[in-house]
Design a protein around this nucleic acid. Structure first.
Lengths: 144, 144
DNA sequence: TATTGTTATACTCTATAACTATA
DNA sequence: TATAGTTATAGAGTATAACAATA
């Protein structure tokens, strides 16, 4: 069996456990504003218009089309977004935030900012930069 | 709306998206050996005997008692662990890996080692140390 | 009364396969 | 035939509340 150096957990295990803890806390912070992590990621993408087709939206978030459809169904039922088919290509669907959606987004944004402040407490700018860089490379390393 | 410096995503969002991608890939690697991330974490804890009561096992993994019970039910149904009540305290339950459980653990360990190698590709020892340290502090920052 | 663990129940997020409607 | 999106269906992981057994 592999020996472990004291204080060093295999990075995969560490990332799995930490990200679960952080994700759960992130979800809890968003739940107070009626949101969740995937919902926040979707609203944020809509807000910043970083996409064209729904698959282009889903892919970077690591979800498949039907999962996005389901989230959009819920958001639409909650009155946060509206969908209507495009005129130029009637297969395509345009999704927009409603006024209520914008307001919900802003509330969640407040929770996200507060959460990030708490999460980053005690970390230097250098450490945050390096964390960002390392996470990027980890993501690339597992991309199929 | 908050401006974003180029190349810098809020750490919460980055961690959420990256850990989802890494977690999905980790799960896929374990699934080839009949496992999953939570199952691996549980088997690994059993293997290293780092616990006494089931709650002591569940807590560090970020799950609640009933969730652990469910996983142990599945593991027992699959013949990987056996449970029997302790003689000294008949409320407590002792959980042990069977021979089949040990074998499954070893197969998963191979997958985990290979996965970690892939995950860490291109990262220096210094970067890994810092990542470990930073993840620890992030976990502490969200601990309730 | 407090603790250990289980049962009952239900929720969220997710995916694959098959489908509709366009193109 | 290919593409955009949805519907149908199913599964994994999780939690809260109530419970049983034991201390």
């Amino acid at each position: 069996m592999a020996e472990r150096r004291p204080g060093r957990t295999p990075v995969g295990r560490k990332l799995a456990v930490t990200s679960k803890a952080v994700g759960t806390a992130f979800n809890a912070a968003l739940a107070e504003q009626g949101g969740s992590v995937p919902v926040w990621l979707i609203l944020d993408s809509l807000k910043h218009g970083r996409w064209t087709t729904q698959l282009d939206l889903a892919r970077p978030l690591g979800i498949e089309g039907p999962t996005l459809t389901r989230h959009l169904d819920n958001l639409e039922a909650g009155g946060l977004v509206v969908r209507h088919r495009s005129d130029s290509d009637r297969r395509a669907v345009s999704v927009e935030l409603t006024t209520a959606g914008e307001e919900a987004y802003e509330r969640m944004l407040g929770a996200v900012i507060a959460f990030n402040r708490r999460l980053q407490a005690g970390l230097t700018a250098d450490e945050l930069r390096l964390l960002d860089d390392v996470l990027t490379r980890l993501g690339e390393n597992v991309r199929t």
